[in-house]
Simulated scan of single mutants.
Amino acid sequence: MELRHLRYFIAVAEHQSVRLASEQLHITQPAVSRQIQDLEQELGLLLFERSSRGLKLTAAGDSYLRDARQTMAALDAAAHSARRVAAGLLGRLRLGCVENAGWDGLVPRAFSHFQAEAPEVQIALEVRNTPEQLRAMADGALDGGFIYQYEPLPEALTGLPLLEHDVVLALPRCWDGDYDETRPIALRGLAERPFVMLPRAAYPGYYDRLNSACRQLGVHLKVAQEASTETAILSLVCAGIGAAIVNSANLGRPPAQARLLRLQDLSLPMPLTFVWRQGAANPVLARFLALLRHETGQEK
């Protein structure tokens, strides 16, 4: 049995006429009649009562028509879903994101536009730092992610540069001092103050770049405490434990008990990059990449 048998049968049953069915199908009448006869022979039963007045479904034929319609509807639905999956409009996308990159600007805008474009796609978003994301992509646990890239990517991964953030100074509001949040501040003037830092193990590439930039400035930061995430660092700043050098993306969600000040004498570009596995076969990922290229003016 082939699908055309069902299509021809349904057409004949709905028109109760081989002639009208053949006109609808653009197939000759003998060909339609032959297919109906072949179907009846294969099933071992009559689907139609034939008379000079035309065709009429038998009881078996009426039952078969209901099931045939359901089968064709299910096949049409399956084909529709498959086309949407192939177009990246249906499926699941597992993405990582450095937390502060998702608060303002490009990343949340891209998610919003993608949701409007492909509302049936499920995005599973995980907040992870850059090294954690790279490991997860290497293990196949993430399809892609937004990272800050300071080192060459592993061979299996490729990246799309998006934008650059910089660093700012986070100061506890409980510290004494006349700080104007509209004017940049010099890091050299705070070198004797305690600082909260990431441990090197959390992100060696960033840690080394930051310390190198401070050494070139002639500043040796006094580390009072370390914390493994920038959220934890800012919590300690708010508690008055120390100042911190943090991502300017935090300006999109400034902590209530910390001042975020631009720096006069220190700049450390933080390149935000979208990274994914080379040769990834997920059509949803391909559509998301196309949107990111459009958002950043990098269409191929």
Rank of each mutant, 00 (worst) to 15 (best):
L39M: 15
S112L: 11
I147T: 14
E42R: 10
Q133I: 09
L89A: 08
D178G: 09
Q37A: 15
A170L: 08
G61Y: 07
A202E: 12
Q298T: 11
Y207F: 15
T71N: 01
C214T: 14
F111T: 04
M1S: 13
R287Y: 06
L89K: 08
H15K: 15
A124D: 15
S22A: 15
F48P: 03
D208N: 04
F114N: 04
S17W: 12
V127Y: 04
G177N: 06
P172C: 06
T229A: 06
E295R: 02
A224G: 11
A82P: 05
P204I: 06
A60G: 03
K300E: 13
A141K: 06
L236D: 04
W175Q: 02
E23C: 06
A244D: 05
R109V: 05
L89W: 03
L45R: 10
I27W: 09
V32E: 05
A280S: 14
T130L: 04
Q70L: 15
V219R: 05
R277K: 12
R84K: 10
P119E: 09
Q37E: 14
A244T: 04
R259E: 02
L272W: 01
D265W: 08
G145C: 10
V107H: 01
G145I: 09
A170H: 02
G297F: 11
A116F: 07
I185W: 10
A136G: 03
T130R: 07
L93H: 06
P204D: 10
R277C: 08
E155Y: 07
D176Y: 03
V219P: 00
Q264F: 02
L162F: 10
Q225E: 15
P161K: 00
L292K: 00
E155W: 05
T58A: 07
M1T: 14
Q122P: 01
F195N: 03
R193K: 13
H165V: 06
T71F: 04
T28R: 10
T296E: 11
A116C: 07
